[in-house]
Write a protein that binds this DNA or RNA. Structure first.
Lengths: 167, 167
DNA sequence: CAAAGCGTTCATTTTTTATTGAACTCTTTG
DNA sequence: CAAAGAGTTCAATAAAAAATGAACGCTTTG
């Protein structure tokens, strides 16, 4: 039997947990979220019991700061919630299984504002293009209009995708 | 008049160029691409004339390596192409204005393989769940099925989005 | 065919991002 | 109401990602 690892008290992750964690690390990385957040959500997602922050830290081998901040973020998404566990003073967490939440928050918080800001830029570019001489203006306008076209398209697609996501 | 900046020979970027560059930096960051790639594409997007790599380096103030690698990446996306400029030995670049290219490549190269790998994981998790005792199995299966449901949904949405993007 | 030009590659450095853990606040408990 | 517990914050550190630039390999040119 091999020597026990450094922290003998933490419960090893089982294979299902590891699969789920890896899956969510990959998925959330796509949304620009750090590994530790993926780990937290992944473990909570497959756990049918609420888990305390301390247990999350121990089982995932992450620090107090990472756990606290990651959970804060997940709470702000509504991806995780705190539940009361009788006889235990500590907060316990469960995952909200509705995955669309991530996508929805991502669309609303990341994509939408970006589109809005981009549209402002396009308008500023159109104004600036007025000052160019005739030849340049024509070529430049064509390009700017293309941008505008795509912004509009993105903005029109948003509500459609959101509706699809919420079910 | 303020002292001239360090590199006196490079042509300053005009306001339209700056707007376009900033817009593409933001947009491409969303796809996980580095700033330098956004700069390159942004400048090429608003330029009606082909630009040599050397000019791109100078005007954007980026290094040879960054320019070479960024252009290589953009070429691989089909976002940029090389054009021949008579009497000049150097390669010159123009942007492909069809922005859907980025999104399409992103979906096909980033999202699709991720979904495929995730599905394999889900299947492995289902197998592993079989070995759990009855109570645990039921709860775990419910969660895994939810994952499967979202994977399927994502996979079904893909061709639809692609069709939408290509026009 | 030597020298210069162009572009790529990649080991190194810089910058950015994520994680750690000690200091702190607020809450509970004996 | 002191002491311990739970959780947050944030300055410092570590890890990851991007940019740099010198060395290299083709191509062109005189």
């Amino acid at each position: 039997m091999p020597a026990k690892a450094a922290k003998p008290y933490e419960t090893e992750l089982n294979e299902i947990e590891i699969e789920a964690i890896e899956m969510f690390i990959n998925f959330l990385k796509l949304l620009g979220l750090p590994k530790s957040v993926g780990e937290l959500y992944g473990l909570l997602f497959v756990s049918s019991q609420p888990i305390s922050m301390e247990a999350l830290m121990e089982r995932l081998g992450i620090s107090m700061g990472a756990a606290s901040q990651g959970l804060k973020l997940l709470r702000s998404f509504g991806a995780v919630k705190v539940v009361y566990v009788p006889g235990d003073r500590r907060d316990h967490y469960v995952a909200d299984l509705e995955l669309s939440r991530f996508a929805t928050v991502f669309l609303k918080d990341e994509i939408q504002p970006r589109l809005d800001r981009a549209l402002v830029r396009v308008e500023r570019m159109e104004e600036l293009a007025e000052t160019l001489d005739a030849t340049e203006r024509k070529a430049t306008f064509e390009r700017i209009e293309r941008l505008r076209h795509w912004m509009d398209r993105g903005r029109k697609m948003m509500p459609w995708i959101l509706r699809f996501l919420v079910k």
